[in-house]
Design a protein around this nucleic acid. Structure first.
Length: 304
DNA sequence: ACGATTATTGCGTTCTT
DNA sequence: AAGAAAACAATAATCGT
């Protein structure tokens, strides 16, 4: 149960080298990316898992009683289930006892949610889990998103807004805080609310809770778009260079980073034969071909 | 595909209440 | 201080090459 090969010293050992260029990779909580070529080695990140520390004196036997607490359940996973038909030893129960247990179960399930508020919390966390799963996010990210939703409810941010939009905004906000290159459109695609509702909910989270979300740069989007479109490593690397230049030459100020990233990839592809079309780039970057052309012109004219 | 022109959207600022 | 509104820049749509 304790985690795999590195349980002894408690430290987690990262993948060492990029399969493409052999250079070291860096692992955030979420993505494993090559430091030089930007290849996304592992997009669906490793679950670093709970801290299975030992409760024994000798610190060697990481045993504990029960499952770890989880932020993803409204009761933090400490719920109780009343079984059917058999007792703890597997013996069948007499009919009158079974009927008694059935009544108990009913009362128990009614009492599980102490209040409307708790019911809302359970609903929201269910939605957060669903969205995080649909996006293929790690458990670590999912748990953080659940925590964020709790904070939103604690700060009374839900009244007047839909639970679904706040749940989606929690997931998106956590992606932003962890430097994940997921876009509003990606979350909105699987959320039960439209893009604008998601955006306003995220704005509320951001202003009221002061999320530590850093501004995003075009280079953060390049690796993801590149792997989505199966572009060559040379083109990806070149696009990253162009993205860096665009940032230093302040071409990327006040514009959508994803649009600039798409333009960088297009420019890089043009230099190497041009296998990327503006259309498919516009598709993955959720922008238009016109925007890509605009930035492409700026990039090629200032970086020649 | 590309450039240009036009329409639309989004957003920080400013003006009210 | 909260909300409405006018103004600006970026983006998207459309047409022509």
């Amino acid at each position: 149960m304790a985690s795999k090969d590195s349980a002894e010293d408690g430290s987690w050992i990262a993948e060492s080298a990029c399969p493409e260029c052999g250079d070291p990779v860096s692992t955030t909580t979420t993505e494993t990316v090559c430091t030089t070529c930007g290849l996304v080695v592992d997009e669906h990140p490793i679950d670093h898992g709970p801290e299975w520390r030992s409760f024994e004196d000798d610190n060697t036997n990481p045993k504990r009683t029960g499952a770890p607490l989880t932020p993803t359940r409204h009761d933090r996973g400490l719920s109780t289930e009343i079984g059917h038909k058999t007792d703890a030893k597997g013996n069948r129960l007499p009919g009158h006892k079974r009927r008694q247990l059935a009544r108990l179960r009913q009362a128990h399930s009614r009492g599980r949610f102490a209040s409307k508020r708790e019911r809302n919390l359970a609903h929201g966390l269910r939605e957060v889990r669903r969205i995080a799963s649909a996006l293929g996010l790690s458990e670590s990210i999912r748990d953080q998103a659940c925590d964020l939703f709790r904070r939103a409810q604690d700060a009374d941010l839900l009244p007047g807004r839909s639970i679904e939009s706040m749940a989606a905004a929690s997931v998106y906000g956590i992606c932003r805080c962890n430097g994940l290159s997921r876009m509003l459109e990606d979350v909105a695609a699987v959320a039960q609310c439209d893009r604008s509702k998601l955006k306003t909910a995220y704005n509320v989270l951001n202003t009221e809770l002061g999320l530590p979300a850093k501004p995003r740069s075009p280079s953060e989007f390049v690796p993801r778009f590149a792997s989505q479109l199966d572009v060559s490593n040379r083109v990806r690397q070149r696009a990253l260079e162009l993205a860096d230049r665009a940032e230093t030459h302040s071409i990327a100020n006040g514009v959508q980073p994803a649009g600039v990233a798409a333009a960088c990839l297009y420019a890089a592809a043009q230099e190497h034969g041009g296998s990327l079309t503006q259309g498919e780039l516009a598709d993955v970057a959720h922008t238009s071909t016109a925007t890509i052309r605009t930035h492409w012109n700026a990039i090629t004219h200032t970086c020649e």
